[in-house]
Write a protein that binds this DNA or RNA. Structure first.
Length: 577
RNA sequence: GCCGUCGUAGCUAAGUGGUAUAGCACUUCCAUGGUAAGGAAGGGGCCGGGUGUUCGACUCACCUCGACGGCACCA
């Protein structure tokens, strides 16, 4: 996917288009005061204060029209440089621009760009003339906090995007169309995967079809983790306040926790799985030879996320982390992380997903532990990436307060990125829970702890998969794998039933549609449900003990002996096709 | 939480100050079909919830719940 911000020509074009937007808005809403209008990866936006006026989605057409008119006029875009005093005078009636000017570094060149009757404070660069701004589209409106701070007043933001030619714009609009078609909320309803209820906002209900998908993913997860030497646990959903005080969640995370009083004791529903895992580790007694201990848990957590943050399966209040905590010696960090990177890569490859890694390092101010330990931990993560032959981008200061982390961003079939897997070193909880092992010299040593997830959250990952595959799941994941359609239900049902049982015995998820409907009608439904294989059974098939197969989204028909078809299904499923 | 939009049948939507429509789905009947919709009849609604204005509210106002697009949040 194209990143407008990183493409110099498109960046400039979009930046100029933001100015054109502001100019058009100034014409239509003369009271408008402007804050900033930067370029982003998907175009540009401009933040503004319109007083009491409100721009709605339906007003965008009129603004676009004004923009086209101005672009056609073809005014040149002229750069002017001026002194601080001149700038303050020029924007005297605009408190937002004054704010910008006053926050500029002493000695910084102050420049403006003028096009006809509109002038804006700006570093540039810009295109020569508004004439080249032809292929743009205003996309959405929203509120946005002044300076991005929720304590501040909310401004209005208009988003748009601009391209160099018609075809590129069209491609982009098609991409938006396609993304909309794949919306997991829509497909989740159409394919009966999950539902939401106003009685449990942000807490998805899995329907039978979605439950199959989920079970397949979980079973795959368990078996792959078993191969990697993981042990599995299940810790309670609800634990006493005393535990959360030890972990620090009571102090730092209480606002997002669901709590309840039981027998006059306070309890909290777990927002994270680590404390439960730590209790299990402490329940044992480990020698240096036992480490690393890899302790996995598909743990359901609840977090009271802000109402406005909820979004289908992507952001929920109840979700299941495919969590694991690895307890080890300091000298094992690098090897363990290398192993994890390979493991994560293997898991994602099954879904045909590429990924890139970001390394987040020690925060500037709020962090625990010594700089030496941080440096060591960061170096271990970086070294592991290098040893694994993986490029990574450093996010300075973006680590958690308790340790540095590696984040994995996967890209789906539309090129959109999602942060899923994460590997986090934790220098905090082992202290708080006094996690130790016995070393070779009989002394107690502090164990190092790693948190990691691969799917991230099962719910969210399912949402991503739905959009990634557009609801057309590969055979091994599909809730229904084969739809059997007897040509004449009354005549061919017994053969169809025999085929169904044969497939079921082999563990294939199969349904039969013996409704009294036309063949074309039933076939159409099977296609709309995106079932990988529709098989049609009539006289010919019955006589030859064969099946007539039509794969999803294909016009092709193939006739195979039943036994061959079954063999093909079984091997494809094993290979996660 | 904030800004904006929205909430009518299982789904997608239309609609008006006088208790409501369509398509798909569903049920029944007819049609007995070979690769994307055969025909007919029928059932189905606290018009998200509450309060108010009104002779009368699905429609107007206010409150509330929920959803969606962003913002903030995602230690």
């Amino acid at each position: 996917m194209i990143n407008i911000k990183e493409n110099l020509a498109l960046n400039t074009l979009n930046h100029s288009c933001a100015h054109l937007l502001a100019q058009a808005i100034k014409h239509l809403y003369p009271q408008a005061k402007f804050w900033v209008g930067p370029v982003i990866s998907d175009g540009f936006y401009y933040d503004m204060d319109l007083g009491d006026a409100v721009i709605r989605e339906e007003d965008l057409g009129a603004i676009e029209k004004e923009m086209k008119k101005l672009a056609k006029d073809g005014k040149r875009i002229v750069r002017e440089e001026l002194s601080r005093e001149q700038a303050l005078e020029l924007f005297a009636d605009d408190p937002y621009k004054i704010d910008l000017i006053e926050n500029m570094e002493e000695g910084e060149v102050i420049s403006t760009y003028r096009q006809g009757d509109f002038v804006d404070l700006c570093r540039g660069p810009h295109v020569e003339s508004v004439k080249v701004l032809k292929f743009f589209k205003l996309l959405k409106v929203s509120g946005a906090y002044f300076k991005g701070d929720s304590k501040n007043k909310m401004l209005q933001r208009v988003y748009g995007i601009c391209f160099e030619n018609e075809a590129e714009l069209k491609d982009y609009l098609n991409f938006l169309e396609e993304a909309k078609k794949r919306d997991h909320k829509k497909l989740g309803r159409e394919l009966d995967l999950f539902m939401m209820s106003e009685y449990a906002p942000g807490m998805p209900f899995f329907l039978p079809n979605g439950m199959i998908l989920r079970n397949v993913l979980e079973n795959f997860w368990y078996s792959e983790h078993a191969k990697e030497g993981y042990q599995f646990i299940k810790s309670p959903i609800m634990m006493s306040r005393a535990l959360w005080e030890i972990s620090g969640h009571w102090e730092n995370y209480k606002a997002n926790m669901y709590t309840s009083a039981v027998d006059e004791q306070e309890y909290a529903i777990k927002p994270m799985n680590c404390p439960g895992s730590l209790l299990v580790f402490k329940n044992g007694f480990y020698s240096y030879k036992d480490l690393p201990i890899r302790m996995g848990e598909l743990g359901q957590v609840h977090r009271h996320e802000a109402s406005g943050a909820l979004n289908g399966l992507f952001r929920v209040r109840s979700f299941t982390q495919d969590d694991a905590h690895i307890y080890m010696r300091e000298d094992q960090i690098e090897g363990e992380v290398i192993r994890l990177i390979a493991f994560i890569e293997r898991m994602y490859a099954v879904f045909g997903m590429e990924y890139r890694i970001e390394l987040s390092t020690r925060p500037e101010e709020k962090y625990i532990g010594s700089i030496e330990v941080w440096d060591k931990a960061e170096a271990a993560l970086a070294k592991a990436c290098e040893a694994a032959g993986k490029d990574y981008k450093v996010n300075p200061g973006d680590g958690a307060f308790y340790g540095p982390k590696l984040d994995f961003h996967i890209s789906d079939s539309l090129g959109r990125e999602w942060q899923c897997a994460t590997i986090q070193l934790d220098m905090n909880l082992p202290e708080r829970f006094d996690i130790t092992y016995v070393d070779a010299d009989q002394s107690k040593k502090r164990a190092v702890m790693l948190h990691r997830v691969i799917y991230g959250s099962i719910e969210r990952f399912i949402g991503i998969l739905i959009e990634h595959y557009g609801g057309a799941f590969p055979l091994w994941l599909a809730p229904v794998q084969v739809q059997i359609i007897p040509v004449l239900p009354e005549v061919h049902s017994s053969y169809a039933q025999a085929v169904k049982e044969r497939l079921e015995q082999a563990g294939i998820r199969v349904v039969m549609d013996e409704r009294n409907e036309k063949l074309g009608y039933r076939l159409r439904e099977a296609q709309m449900k995106k079932i990988p294989y529709s098989i049609v059974l009539g006289d010919k098939e019955q006589e030859a003990e064969s099946v007539n197969i039509r794969p999803y989204n294909s016009q092709d028909q193939e006739v195979l002996p039943l036994a061959d078809f079954l063999k093909k299904l079984e091997s494809d499923i094993i290979e996660h096709k």
